[in-house]
Design a protein around this nucleic acid. Sequence first.
DNA 1: AGTACGCTAGGACAGTTGTCCTAGGCCAGA
DNA 2: TCTGGCCTAGGACAACTGTCCTAGCGTACT
Lengths: 199, 199
Amino acid sequence: MEKGAATRAQIVAAADRLFYEHGFEHTSFATIAGALQISRGNFYHHFKTKDDILSAVIEERLAATRRMLQQWDAEAPEPAGRIRQFIRIVLTNGQDIQNYGCPVGTLTAELAKLGHPCHRDATALFTLFRAWLREQFVELGHQTDADALAMHVLAFSQGVATLSHAFRDDEFVHREVNRLEAWLDACAAGPAFSQTADQ
Amino acid sequence: MEKGAATRAQIVAAADRLFYEHGFEHTSFATIAGALQISRGNFYHHFKTKDDILSAVIEERLAATRRMLQQWDAEAPEPAGRIRQFIRIVLTNGQDIQNYGCPVGTLTAELAKLGHPCHRDATALFTLFRAWLREQFVELGHQTDADALAMHVLAFSQGVATLSHAFRDDEFVHREVNRLEAWLDACAAGPAFSQTADQ
DNA sequence: AGTACGCTAGGACAGTTGTCCTAGGCCAGA
DNA sequence: TCTGGCCTAGGACAACTGTCCTAGCGTACT
């Protein structure tokens, strides 16, 4: 049982990475099996279908995201600092994003195109960030437009990730991060000012 | 020859749409053939490989994009008005973007994950918009930071498209369009002001 | 009227996919 | 030492993929 759970976790970890790097559909059982040097038929004991692996991967990503957000809550005492950590993800994970794009955005887009039932679960990853960002903006004093501001930050990260992936331009990413951090400073200065700060 | 060119164009048009709606890899010869009610073996006469179809689709998209940009040049006399038309794409093609995302962004991302040789050609679609936007900003008087501003507008469109696709939120799209149009107005007011306008 | 050729339909082909079965290896408990 | 059950390897299976071949249709030109 101990060993079984370990290989199961290995399968999920390998699938997670391969789905990210090469896409869900393009990643076959054979690819995962080859990466782990495990028999192809062995999968059936741990996962009945490929979709089951995808579900497990998404669940793991949800859990990992929750852990990360909790850590941010613990590390940064103020909401502005927390939002800043999110903004800087495109720098922190810069290499991966340049090579493979945003793991959330690309997976959601792919599953939507496939008409895959797990699409909803993948969108929940977005919702996790959205709700967390909204909370931070509420704490910042933006009760009324907290969700709109959260969506704006989310859109920033998606836009930057997509173009960073397409053009592999480090300077661009830094420029946009600086821009949004300045915008965030204006936001933090007060709700009244923020209405015009971003225009 | 006349008829041959017509069916060839039909194949490209159907493939273009299907690649957009369901992705390149997920779209098979059988799918395209079924959509056109054409024999599967018939493809070989027009395209040697599936990649050839993809190349033709990208070429067609490049040509269509060039036509659209030329039309914008003709329609709007001032650069600010032209940039505005680009910004409003996310409204003009709002329904498609909500359902399938940005045709450029999603194709580029997919081909990158597949390690497909046509990835460079797909990126050229981005470059087309980038260069055109840059020209407009130069005409607006932003010689030094024209490319940075072009990339900013491009990032906006990708971010909005991705989230519009994920959440299907019309209000969000309108909000972000208004926000960037206000930013554009500040940009058009003069290069000196634009440095702080977006902060 | 005859012929050459662009165009099409249908199917063959090998390779790969996800799914599933079965036989055997391993290790804990009796 | 024997036994039961978790775990694994290897392969079978039908369905599907992209690729390719061949026979026949239709239509323009001689």
